[in-house]
Amino acid sequence: MASLIACPHCGPRPKEEFTVRGDAGITRPAPDAGEDAWYAYVYLRDNPRGRHKEHWHHTSGCRRWLVVERDTMTHTIYTVTDASAEGETA
């Protein structure tokens, strides 16, 4: 994991200030979406080797949820945006 995450609100900060939640690419199904949809949401993961979007919380900073796009192999960080800008709830 990269040492610094560039928070869009606070600037570059050490990753220790952040808490990872996980895959930002999955969307919560409707309550009545059926077992298969819920199974996929709760258990199945793309788990890419390469570019990956995740939710990170700036826990010891502005306490905003962020979407961090990074490489799971090289640890390069491509983009960091506020999760509210994504327009989706996961």
Binding site: S3, E16, V20, G22, E54, T72, H75
Partner: peptide, 14 residues
């Protein structure tokens, strides 16, 4: 575990 998805055989200092 370090706590985030990784395919790299190396971790971080924290």
């Amino acid at each position: 575990i370090d706590g985030y998805n990784s395919y790299a055989q190396r971790g971080n200092l924290a």
